[in-house]
């Protein structure tokens, strides 16, 4: 067993220290060490996007990221978006457009959708679809998720 490593990083705007095993994933750290369960385990190999988080502003799969590599970086999880107007707009759009069913993929979808909107002002549907290609959903058939992202973009523009 590897010894634990002390790291310090900014988590949802607040500086955190944590002692993590060197082989631990950021996902395990967030859920099991820090108790933030909004980031979901779906596959553990970067195929489903349920564990999407933002690191230094870019979306990453927390299951592929070594927890130790969070050291000195800025990490945002779904819990960190509670007061973020752009995220709230998306979350409202997800509810109003029926983009949530079982909801297990939803936090990851919301985070990734936020990146799509941050990059492109008015993304077309194809751009939204490509942007969500790393986020699996088994319930909705994606259409209403795409609708929600499109609506949030329009609302922001209005």
């Amino acid at each position: 067993m590897s010894r634990s490593v002390e790291i310090e990083f900014r988590l949802n705007g607040v500086v955190r220290r944590a002692a993590v095993r060197a082989d631990m994933s950021a996902l395990a750290m967030l859920r099991d060490v820090l108790g933030l369960t909004g980031t979901k385990y779906g596959c553990g190999e970067g195929e489903c996007g349920a564990c999407t988080i933002l690191v230094d502003g870019a979306s990453l799969n927390a299951c592929l990221l070594f927890a130790v590599d969070c050291d000195g970086r800025e990490v945002t999880t779904i819990e960190g978006l509670a007061n973020d107007p752009a995220a709230q707009r998306l979350q409202r759009a997800f509810a109003e457009h029926g983009a949530v069913q079982c909801g297990f993929c939803t936090p990851g979808m919301v985070l990734q959708a936020g990146r799509i909107l941050a990059r492109a002002g008015q993304p077309d549907r194809a751009t939204i679809q490509r942007g969500l290609e790393g986020n699996l959903c088994r319930c909705t058939g994606y259409k209403k998720i795409i609708d929600a992202v499109e609506a949030a973009a329009k609302e922001r523009a209005a």
């Binding site: 909004g38 509670a82 949530v100 909801g103």
Partner: peptide, 21 residues
């Protein structure tokens, strides 16, 4: 009507606790 799911806000904000949580 188009009625949003009652549990959607909880789920979209990551607050819903599934068995894993």
């Amino acid at each position: 009507k188009r009625v949003p799911k009652m549990d959607a806000p909880e789920k979209a904000s990551g607050k819903t606790r599934y068995i894993h949580d």
